[in-house]
């Protein structure tokens, strides 16, 4: 075989290797989705979504409290992290060159890198210990700490892309600075900020580690934010590691609900980005 042919064969071999290793990635994804859908679909029905978890052996168990709890936790996390995060993003954009801004950027970066379990410890020490018990609000704060860097990043990146002329036009028309920011700049970047918020929600919706010793879990329905609440990831963790087959079935169902929510949200975000 001559040299050129040998080189072409080597190239072909490399291509085959690349395609093969890409397909290797398809296998786990396919398997995970297959098992969750095939196991989850058999337990999901209207009753499953609207009734409470039952002791092992009792028929008609559901995950209604986990769905409500997840909503509650995400609501608290969003209510805290969205306004604060947008304000920080605005600050970083407007006072971009100051020392404070570089300190804030550093802090956001560090916060984003902190492992979720450590965030859980901090929320426990800050909220659970002073309140004297596990609560929804401590779980919501833990999730807010995880969401915050994503909201800040999204706001800063989006505002950076908004043309200066827009701001100058508004200021030139005599609109005061603060109104320009609130009425012109933030609405112009609303789509980008929303994308960041949705990605943040998709991420914290599946977080379990920071909830283990904050929201803790609760077999009953509650909307009281000073009480422990259940959430979808918590019920999956607790029931999946239990020895009872019917609880494990509930965990498959809860996994399917969670994955539909999370992946649906990220697909929605992708279409938003494309627009």
């Amino acid at each position: 075989m001559n040299r050129v042919a040998f080189r072409l064969v080597k190239d072909l071999g490399f291509r085959i290797y690349l395609v093969a290793s890409t397909s290797v990635l398809l296998i786990p994804l396919g398997l995970i989705l297959y098992y969750i859908v095939s196991n989850g679909i058999t337990v999901i029905n209207w009753d499953f979504l609207t009734s409470l978890p039952k002791p092992p052996g009792v028929l008609g168990a559901g995950i209604s409290n986990a769905i409500v709890g997840s909503g509650l936790l995400i609501g608290i996390a969003g209510a805290l992290s969205i306004p604060f995060g947008v304000a920080i993003g605005l600050f970083l954009n407007e006072f971009s060159e100051t020392h404070l801004a570089s300190a804030v950027r550093l802090c956001v970066e560090v916060l984003q890198g902190i492992p979720s379990i450590v965030i859980g410890i901090v929320a426990y020490l800050w909220i659970v210990v002073p309140l004297g018990g596990f609560s929804a609000v401590s779980g919501g704060i833990a999730l807010a700490l995880m969401m915050l860097p994503m909201v800040v990043r999204a706001t800063e990146e989006t505002l950076k892309l908004i043309p200066h002329s827009l701001k100058e036009a508004s200021l030139g028309l005599g609109v005061p600075y603060y109104r320009t920011m609130i009425k012109i700049i933030v609405p112009a970047g609303a789509n980008g900020i929303l994308t960041g918020v949705l990605l943040g929600v998709a991420r914290v919706a599946g977080e379990t580690a920071p909830l283990l010793f904050t929201a803790f879990g609760n077999p009953f329905m509650t909307v009281n934010i000073t009480q422990p609440v259940n959430s979808l990831p918590l019920i999956i963790y607790n029931f999946a590691t239990s020895p009872y087959p019917d609880w494990q079935q509930v965990a498959w169902g809860a996994s399917l609900v969670l994955i539909i929510f999370v992946l649906g949200l990220s697909l929605l975000t992708r279409t938003l980005i494309k627009r």
Binding site: L25, L26, Y35, E207, P233, I236, Y237, Q248, I259, S266
Partner: peptide, 24 residues
């Protein structure tokens, strides 16, 4: 397609990977 695939894998919550790992 590859990008979507990678994003999907990245979006699956940790607890579900653990659950799947435990049973499969």
């Amino acid at each position: 397609a590859i990008r979507t695939l990678v994003d999907l894998l990245a979006g699956i919550p940790s607890v579900i990977y653990g659950f799947w790992g435990l049973f499969i």
